[in-house]
Amino acid sequence: MKKVLVAAIFLVWAAGLCILPLLLSFGNPAATDMDTYFLRNGQAAAAANNIVTSVVFDFRGFDTLGESVVLFTAVTGVALMFRARKEGEEHEDE
C-alpha cells in the first residue's frame, strides 16, 4: 500500500516535470535584453574580454561577496566541528 502511494506520488511528480520540455524550447531564450546589454557594453565598461567574469565581479559584485561569505561561513562551521579540544573540555562527541 505504502509502495503504491510512493509510486503514485512519483508519477505525479514526473508528469508535472514533463511539462518543462514540452513548453520550453531549447536554444531560443525568451527575454534577452539584459544579456544583450552585457554583451554589447560589458567589454567597454569593465574592460574585460570574459563577459562572465565581468558579470560575476563587476555588474553583480555584491552577489559574489555574499557567495564568498557563504564559503567562509561553511569553512568556519567545519573548523568549529573538528577543532582540537582542550584537556578536560566537555563535548558531546564519542
Partner: peptide, 26 residues
Amino acid sequence: TAGVIPLMNIAVGVEVWGGLAIILMY
C-alpha cells in the same frame, strides 16, 4: 586590462584555495 577584476580574481582564488584545503584537511 580589466581594472579591479584581476585583483578580485586573485583574492577569491586565495580564499577558495585556503578554504577548500582546510576543509579537506579537517
